[in-house]
Amino acid sequence: MLTKTSFQGKLTKTEDLFIPFIVAGDPSPELTIQFALRLQEEGADVLELGVPYSDPLADGPTIQRAAQRALKSGMSLRKAIELVPKLREHGLEIPVVIFTYYNPVLQIGHEEFFQLLGENGVEGLLIPDLPFEESEEIRNRSEEKGIEFISLVAPNSDQRIKQIAEHAKGFLYCVSSLGVTGERKEMSAEALAFIEKVRQYSQVPVAVGFGISTNDHVQLVRNHADGVIIGSKIIRLIEAEIENIEKGRMDEALKHFTKEIRALVQ
């Protein structure tokens, strides 16, 4: 049985989670707030707020482009954390996970970084280039501050799956290409076996991400996991509205974005 998930009491649901990822400042801090609110309206349970980085090793071209746009808009780790209370002012209630590479955290320093997370009411933290072996201090500090440190697990994590899953907080991020090829509408046997194995050890909801871009994918994941994480697809939907935004057609952009998100996750 899954334990009640927390995020400082803001997430009590343990299944059918929709976890979108957007990059803070893409294409501007003001629009990040607007897109986040629309995602909440369409049923997002947790918001992964990405911090743009010059050298994002774990990201493909779509998120790299978003990071470049956000860096141009002046975004930084500190400003992304400070965006969280502004999101709240505008009505965002769902928990926020700050998704950042490790180097910017090091430049602020662990002590000040956690102080910032606390002061600005951040509920979760994900550092994609900080694997279990390197994350002990950050995990301990997160625990002290009541911040969920989100762990990732991959199909090739093998013997490490048990250790990672048992220590997981908040939700467990399963990095899995679905094995969906062409017209196939089922997940591959390997992907299913992997998710089953993870669920066996995890005390928190298991959410699947990477490469989820259609409503069919979403439905498939819902059948087998507790949550779906969608990143690149949402970034592409934002990207598609940039022309509208630049021409000042803000309402149209947000309306169209909302419609697309609804079609994706309904």
Partner: peptide, 12 residues
């Protein structure tokens, strides 16, 4: 030193 890499590289 160390290994500051995405989880997907820890196995390899």
């Amino acid at each position: 030193g160390g290994k500051y890499v995405p989880e997907t590289l820890m196995g390899p």
